[in-house]
Structures are given as structure tokens and as C-alpha cells.
Design a protein around this nucleic acid. Sequence first.
DNA 1: CTAAATGCAAAATCTTTGCAGCCTC
DNA 2: GAGGCTGCAAAGATTTTGCATTTAG
Lengths: 138, 138
Amino acid sequence: MNHPKTPRVSLGQRKTRQRDEISEVIRSAQGPLTVQEIYERTQQSVPGLGIATVYRTLNLLQEAEQIQTVILPTGETRYEMSGLGHHHHFHCRSCNEVYDLDDCPVTVQTGAAVGEGFVVETHELTLYGLCPECIEAA
Amino acid sequence: MNHPKTPRVSLGQRKTRQRDEISEVIRSAQGPLTVQEIYERTQQSVPGLGIATVYRTLNLLQEAEQIQTVILPTGETRYEMSGLGHHHHFHCRSCNEVYDLDDCPVTVQTGAAVGEGFVVETHELTLYGLCPECIEAA
DNA sequence: CTAAATGCAAAATCTTTGCAGCCTC
DNA sequence: GAGGCTGCAAAGATTTTGCATTTAG
């Protein structure tokens, strides 16, 4: 019996500086970030990192359910780590910063709010206003 | 004194079939429509109407505050007539149809939900689930 | 070494804009 | 008629993809 070269069936992904840094930037943020923010922040530790790599990595992390997309009612797309549980966001209209909310102020009276026959499974909420820093600065 | 030709200062916009139809399509919808939906529906009464005209008219109507943009948490941009008052939307995850809600199930406890120092001025809510037709079809 | 990951640039989307001809007013 | 409006096509903006090269394992 001969020794067939073990066919390396490596399905796993590789660990790279780029991916590590992109993950880290998202993980250490206090709220969801835009692609541009992620791109700019990763430049500091991994100069030359391409925007395509950011997009590719974001899609990967999303499929791996390590991060999730947050699309604000303004149309702005942002990314944050998943596993934060049910929560919503506060969007400061002055500095544009987005904060995570701990509480959910929504109580959905299933039929009432919509009309008979609708089944509400989930909801998305975004609050707008001014954050403490912008109020102070005003 | 001579008679200078009265300079026609017509700042107003003109009434055209295209604009009429785009307005009408939005006004007669039961919920916010996508650009494609508006485009397709107008083709029926005004064949040849270009997509650029749809975009231009949507921007016009928006500046005139006759319609407003609705961006769903999926990233889908839709348009609906304004003057509907404070309301939210129900998005059917099966047929993708969007319905207007009459009731607002959100009671924001200003400080509580966010933390001290935040001032909540407004909010956006989208409910997800199944509409009556899709439940029936299931 | 081998194949996955990267960076660059080209391609694919979606939306806006320039321009010649058309149509309101 | 004059100037706004339209349709077409080109230009932007954003995200994805192809490919040669680099790099992790």
C-alpha cells in the first residue's frame, strides 16, 4: 500500500492581520461603525489595507454571524458585533454618533397596532436626538 | 418711457403627464413604494417614461414636501405621500409588501431607555412579520 | 509548498447630471 | 416662442468581483 499524499482538506479560514484588525476595530467600538470608519481605523495599524478587503471581511464575519448589519433610517449602513441581544440604537443628529440602547421601549400589542390578521415577529427601532456631549457643547 | 418686454418670471414648475402620473401612483398606493415599483407602474400609463425622470420627480416632490422617503432596516428605499402624521410601517417578510400602521406602540421614557443626558426627539419603528394574505397562503 | 487572502483595478448597481430636442404655458 | 421638462447616455458613488501576487499554515 502506497502512501497517497494526504489531501489537505483545509476548509477553514486563515488568520490574517487584516481580519484580526477589522474584527478588533468593530469589537472595541461603543456602537455600530460605518465602512469608512472601519477602513480609516484599520489603516492606522495595517497601512495599505484595501477597502475591498474591508468589504470582503465584513461579509465573511456576517456569514459567520460574528457581526451584523445595522441600517439606520437615514440609509447609513453600519456594522456591529452580534450577540448583543435585543437592542436598539440612538442616533445623535448633531455629531452623527450611534449609541447602543440597553432598554427596549417597545411593547407591541400584536393585533392592535397593525390590524387583525397581521403577525408581528420582530421590530426595529431607532431613536433620534442629542447626545450628552452635543447638549453640553450647545 | 418705452415698453420693456415683460420678462416672464415663471418660477413655477410645469404640469406634465409624467409628473402627474408619478404623483398619482404614489398617492394611490396603500404603502410606500420602491423606485422600481413607481417606475413600472408609470410605464403603463406613460410608456417610455425614463427612470431619470422618476428620480428627478421624486426629488422634486420631496423638496415640495409632497412625499417623503422611507428607508427600511433592510436598506430598501421607498417613497410615500407626506402628511400622514406620525406613523410607522409593517414589513411582510414573505411578500415584501409594506403597510402603514395607524398606531404607534412606542412610549419613550426619555432618560430611561438611553441613559442620563440623552434627549430623544423622535423615533423610527418598523415591524416585521407576516401579513394576512401570506398567513392565509401558508 | 498549496491554497487562501490581499490589493489593485475593472465591473456591477444605483442615482445624479449634461445636453439636445420636446412640450407647457 | 422661451424656458422648463424629458429621454438618453455619460458620470458619480458605492459595493462586488477577477486576477496576479503575497502569505498563512
